[in-house]
């Protein structure tokens, strides 16, 4: 066989053989399944093309689930961005002992992966009706948390829980950008007569801006795709879009498999779009940091 093939062809064949397992795996278990879902979003059960599935998304339950998901994701991305920036800024540039920085980075690495069932349990044990904080607030301060309108299985409760992985993720993403703010910029600004506030307004924030927006996009995508935390925390009390999709996959509750595809496509479009924004902004930020 090898003697029949021209030498160059044989060489390039053996080159490709080395990466073949990876590409076959990625095709079968990543690309094709995703494509199947995307194509399903644009076809009828008989295989003909349609946009009806997508327009059906704009109906009552699904639209309100989409709206709820968007609100949760935007809100937790927003708070996570601000919270993470504050924490990272305090640890890196706030004059705290350097040992704290290592501790915070290690913790962030772990906590950013906490999304899931145990996180929900932790919040139930802490802020649930019998949780530690709820009980202590009642016994020590006479405050009934649940009488104030707070409810762990509601929007505010879910936001609280999501921040537990959103803030650490932000800390991890934004740390290199804050490290990239060079001391000389601050000193130059100062020697040119600028105050600390002027430095932040005119130099530091504009330089950080693409990184901040990019991180926001990534946090948004991260929250939008999360399912397990919400399910374990609220059951199905709070129907965000992925929970509807989960129920649809499990029991075809929408009685239309192609509507499920459409929901999936909407999710890919949103998280994918957010990621594209993230990558684009990060490249922009890196160009400056050279």
């Amino acid at each position: 066989m090898s003697s029949l093939l021209p030498h160059r062809l044989e060489r390039s064949l053996s080159l490709w053989l080395g990466v073949l397992p990876f590409f076959v795996f990625a095709l079968v278990f990543l690309v094709l399944p995703t494509l199947h879902v995307v194509i399903g979003a644009f076809t009828r059960p008989d295989g003909s093309l349609t946009l009806a599935n997508l327009s059906d998304l704009m109906s009552g339950t699904i639209l309100s689930a989409l709206w709820l998901s968007l609100r949760i994701s935007l809100w937790t991305a927003c708070l996570g961005t601000i919270g993470g920036l504050l924490v990272a800024g305090a640890v890196i540039r706030g004059g705290l002992p350097p040992a704290l920085r290592d501790a915070v980075m290690t913790f962030s690495g772990v906590a950013s992966n906490f999304a899931g069932v145990p996180l929900a349990f932790a919040f139930i044990a802490t802020l649930g009706r019998l949780g530690l904080v709820t009980v202590l607030a009642r016994d020590w301060f006479g405050i009934n948390l649940y009488a104030t309108g707070f409810n762990l299985t509601s929007f505010s409760g879910l936001t609280m829980a999501y921040l537990y992985f959103q803030i650490p993720l932000m800390v991890l993403i934004i740390t290199p950008a804050i490290d990239g703010l060079r001391g000389e910029w601050r000193e130059t600004a100062e020697s040119l007569g600028a105050s600390g506030v002027q430095y932040w307004r005119m130099v530091a924030l504009p330089v950080l801006w693409p990184s901040l927006l990019g991180a926001f996009a990534l946090l948004f995508a991260n929250a939008f795709g999360a399912v397990a935390t919400a399910m374990a925390l609220t059951g199905s009390a709070l129907s965000i879009l992925p929970i509807i999709l989960f129920a649809q996959i499990r029991g075809d509750v929408l009685q239309d498999p192609h509507l499920g595809y459409a929901i999936a496509f909407a999710m890919i479009a949103l998280t994918g779009g957010a990621n594209v924004i993230y990558i684009w902004l990060r490249l922009r930020a890196e160009r400056w940091q050279k």
Partner: peptide
């Protein structure tokens, strides 16, 4: 403070503001 001294400074690393 440094900002009140009216002293110009040039650094080895240029330290130009990258956003401007």
């Amino acid at each position: 403070r440094a900002s009140q001294r009216q002293i110009g400074m040039v650094f080895q690393s240029y330290a130009l503001f990258p956003n401007m």
